[in-house]
Design a protein around this nucleic acid. Structure first.
Lengths: 167, 167
DNA sequence: TAAGATTGAGCCCTCAATCTTT
DNA sequence: AAAGATTGAGGGCTCAATCTTA
């Protein structure tokens, strides 16, 4: 049986393929690495940590569920499940939104704030070791621009745009 | 109650934070976008597609499980579950390794090869639209170098290194 | 004892359905 | 009818345990 190899290289040239396979590898491996550190040191998933962190920086440590979903690049469904778990652990409280009866607010509790403060240094250290310290300052800026360009394709509405500006 | 905001910004400067939040967003959103296209058009997860694609480019369309795990940035456990599913669908066959009795080979079947060939064009189109076309040729090369630098931290053994060289 | 691989339990996420409010 | 949010079922992944071969 004659083998006809190289399906993918029919469509992508060597340069594109090199970039693509490495991006795939980062996307597959980075979440696991972040999870591992947070699980071990803080008993949090990365998504849980990120949600707590976004709340910690919001006015009154409170965000409407929809707003928190945007900031965490999440669906409302996923977020709702996660907030339920965080609520059971006492890190977040759901509250009625006084201005809109069909909205729900998520508020970081005092215990939740302590959790973020206690977890942040170790997590940031991991972020530095795994990513930021591997790049030159110039590459860090390039990364921002490239990720922005990709996000425009992934989410043309710009809903997931980071609250932190480019420069 | 006095609010002490900005937990994360104590540890990361503005430039780092901008890059980090965007990288997180890409890592959260890209897998879902790739999955959606492949689910819809080919009834495959991205990981399933990638495993089939790696087999399609291997000599005799066959790889030992351990080798396939490396090429797919996966654990052996995850791979074993996925290969079982692909085997039930007739896309992959497990075979004894004639040279090592404790090794297992995964071989792409004819049906599996047809599946890759049928799925590749649509997937590559998505890859172009979502990522490659968003970047300049120079950025594509920068991406390769940056991802390589990060992967060295994520996997110092280099086991997950892409078979496709940088230039 | 380690390497190669598999298995099952438990957890998290996705998807579709549902409910309430506008 | 749409917006905001929740829920439950089903599926994939992780982790630890297990099994076989070197």
């Amino acid at each position: 049986m004659p083998y006809d190899r190289f399906v993918t290289t029919r469509w992508l040239d060597q340069t594109e393929l090199a970039a693509w396979t490495r991006l795939i590898a980062v996307v597959e491996l980075l979440p696991g690495a972040l999870e591992a550190q947070l699980r071990r040191d803080a008993d949090l998933t990365h998504f849980e940590y990120y949600a707590l962190a976004m709340l910690s920086e919001a006015p009154r440590r409170t965000l409407q569920m929809t707003a928190l979903a945007r900031r965490t690049n999440s669906t409302l469904s996923r977020l709702s499940h996660v907030v339920s778990r965080l609520e059971e652990r006492g890190f977040v409280a759901r509250e009625a939104n006084p201005e809109n009866a069909r909205a729900t607010n998520a508020r970081l509790t005092a215990a939740g704030y302590r959790k973020v403060v206690a977890s942040a240094p170790g997590h940031v250290t991991a972020v530095r070791e795994l990513v930021l310290d591997a790049l030159t300052p110039q590459q860090v800026r390039q990364l921002t621009r490239m990720a922005d360009a990709i996000l425009e394709r992934l989410d043309p509405s710009g809903a997931m745009a980071s609250p932190y500006p480019v420069e």
